[in-house]
Simulated scan of single mutants.
Amino acid sequence: MALTLYIDTARWRAHQQSVVQQFPGIVPVCKGNGYGFGHERLADEAARFGSDILAVGTTYEAARIKDFFSGDLLVLTPFRLGEEPVPLPDRAIRSVSSVEGVRGLVGARVVIEVMSTMKRHGISEEDLPKLHAAIEDVRLEGFAIHLPLDRTDGSDAVQEVAGWMDRLNAARLPLHTMFVSHLKADELARLRQQYPQTRFRARIGTRLWLGDHDATQYRGAVLDVTRVTKGDRFGYRQQKAPGDGHLVVVAGGTSHGVGLEAPKTMNGMMPRAKGAARAGLATMNRNLSPFVWAGKQRWFAEPPHMQVSILFVPGDAPAPQVGDELVAHLRHTTTQFDRMLDH
């Protein structure tokens, strides 16, 4: 009995191909938990559609994935002086976001990140004159820019990239390759037309692996079903059953990522009102689970345990049977499955 990730393999790969065709020279990203699929699986998929490079989050991820992918490995986290050395093959490419970092990577293959409106990390315009001497001692693979997802000020992503292209050209720095993130296919086409001498390579993870939501599905197996009447005590904290119904024990707990939720940015009155309503229900020990049964998302009977969750299914709904599987709406990037099945 397990929390299972089911993959409609043909549909999933068809979506991958559609993205690959929209973004020639794509750099598939495999970081964190491998977008819910695992590093080994995504490395296999990238090799399957012929990618010559795979982007990973950290040097530790690169060390783990090097035995599963034979192409280049682009480490996205910038190099920092004094960081713990991790043995990596020559096909590893380090991102770097400072002049000092470039100088600390003598002989290495590097991609230099420029500062975007993300304001996360990157070389500033003032640093560009200092790069001439620094890049002589490294193997420069190109420059990179990581763009924000939303542009609430109405600004244009292409113009932001173009601004940096013009600055780099004015500084007489080599611009044979530019790695970009969070651009649409038509925006990338505009840049290619405007700068035909530069090869633009899109680093894509979420859109590539998770763009077709119906290609994958999590399901938790029902382990036990116990009938209760209103007021019956149950669980670790011996709470009272809110009514007649059934306690359903289903595979999937905190060790799988069930119950974990990242903070959200809320814009507008409706999302804020919903957030306030959820917070109010939580103070009454009413927390909606990700598990669906009989067409409805069911409430946690109590907070999820390490490997299972206990749900309350009211008496007006049919009781599931042991061995049934409940669909679970889970976030791929925070979920750890017990098994993965292609079908």
Rank of each mutant, 00 (worst) to 15 (best):
M165V: 14
M165Q: 09
M165S: 09
M165H: 12
D166G: 04
D166N: 15
R167H: 14
L168H: 09
L168S: 10
N169Y: 10
A170T: 15
R172N: 15
R172H: 15
R172E: 15
H176S: 15
T177A: 13
F179M: 14
V180W: 00
V180A: 01
V180R: 02
S181L: 00
S181K: 07
H182E: 13
H182G: 05
L183Y: 12
D186V: 08
D186C: 09
D186N: 15
E187A: 02
A189C: 05
R190Y: 02
R190H: 08
R190L: 15
L191W: 02
L191G: 09
L191E: 08
R192K: 15
R192P: 07
R192L: 06
Q193I: 10
Q193N: 12
Q194K: 14
Q194Y: 08
Q194P: 09
Y195W: 14
Y195H: 13
P196K: 07
Q197Y: 02
T198I: 11
R199C: 14
F200T: 04
F200G: 03
A202L: 13
R203C: 05
R203T: 01
I204F: 02
I204D: 04
G205N: 01
T206V: 12
T206F: 14
T206H: 12
R207T: 11
L208A: 07
L208Q: 05
W209D: 00
L210Y: 07
G211W: 08
G211C: 11
D212P: 04
D212W: 11
A215C: 09
T216P: 02
T216L: 11
Q217F: 10
Q217G: 09
Q217D: 08
Y218T: 02
Y218L: 00
G220F: 03
G220E: 01
A221E: 14
D224S: 15
D224W: 05
V225H: 03
V225S: 02
V225L: 05
T226R: 12
T226M: 10
T229D: 13
G231H: 04
G231W: 02
R233N: 04
R233F: 01
F234L: 03
F234D: 03
G235F: 01
G235E: 00
Y236R: 14
Y236E: 12
Y236I: 08
Y236L: 11
R237T: 04
Q238M: 12
Q238I: 02
Q239W: 12
Q239P: 01
K240D: 13
A241Y: 04
A241K: 06
P242T: 05
P242I: 03
P242V: 04
D244T: 05
D244N: 11
D244E: 13
H246K: 04
L247F: 03
V248G: 04
V248H: 09
V249I: 10
V249T: 15
V249D: 10
V250L: 08
A251Y: 06
A251Q: 11
G252L: 10
G252D: 04
G253I: 00
G253Q: 05
T254N: 04
T254Y: 05
S255M: 11
H256R: 02
G257K: 13
V258D: 13
V258G: 06
